[in-house]
Design a protein around this nucleic acid. Structure first.
Lengths: 115, 115
DNA sequence: CCCACCAATCGTCTATCGACGATAAACGTT
DNA sequence: AACGTTTATCGTCGATAGACGATTGGTGGG
């Protein structure tokens, strides 16, 4: 019989996209930056992103109990980050493994540094 | 009698704060980054910020007719940027002169690059 | 002194965010 | 097949964002 939590940090996160193209059009770049900024425009999402960057191995519900938020709320934040392309989720058995999309983070940095 | 617009780019923006301290606490840093990100989480605000960075001289209502938005809407966006500390407004006669707060932008870059 | 101009504020409206509990969906295990 | 575990989704609620028109507030010019 299992205990409680199975904090198994599986070795997921396989491909890792190279790096989304930096938009040539100014308007496109502005929209891109705005979208990425909105994705990290909440402390919890910043915390999640940082958490995923630190542990290159992915995590799942570990995130939930590192944050003072309900599971459903964390799931929504994860969805926003995923929709923005900053992270990627992968079903790993019963759990889901999230990991950073390094290219997207690089794009964010490039866009911010290009201000 | 004057023509229409007086696109006078006056030499405002005097002191320029050095650079706000990068928060030591993780939570503080997350909150800081989230707040700054929220400030640029809209294409119009990114456009405004970029516009102000390019022309180190400040501008005012020039911003309004570079954007497809009503004057009041632009004013609100400016307020958000100002509240976030990213820009500074200074009454220059009848017009108001906005300019970038370089330290805040530097802080934003530092926080993003520190992800 | 009044007027024109520029910017900020107010009031309103709709849409989205953020949070939660409850429920559903997927999977491994027994 | 039924169960428990894990995550996503739904429904709700209050709060906030985003947009606009209209109004107010300053300031310089007549």
């Amino acid at each position: 019989m299992m205990k409680k939590k199975q904090t198994k940090s599986a070795p997921c996160c396989p491909p890792a996209e190279p790096m989304p193209p930096v938009p040539k059009s100014l308007d496109k770049a502005n929209a891109q930056l705005a979208a990425l900024a909105k994705a990290i425009a909440h402390p919890a999402r910043v915390a999640i992103l940082r958490m995923l960057v630190r542990r290159e191995g992915c995590i799942v519900g570990d995130i939930v109990d590192e944050l003072p938020l309900a599971q459903s709320t964390v799931s929504q934040h994860l969805k926003q980050l995923k929709d923005a392309g900053l992270i990627r989720g992968e079903v790993e058995g019963p759990r889901v493994c999230y990991c950073v999309e390094p290219g997207a983070v690089a794009l964010l940095k490039a866009l911010v540094n290009g201000l």
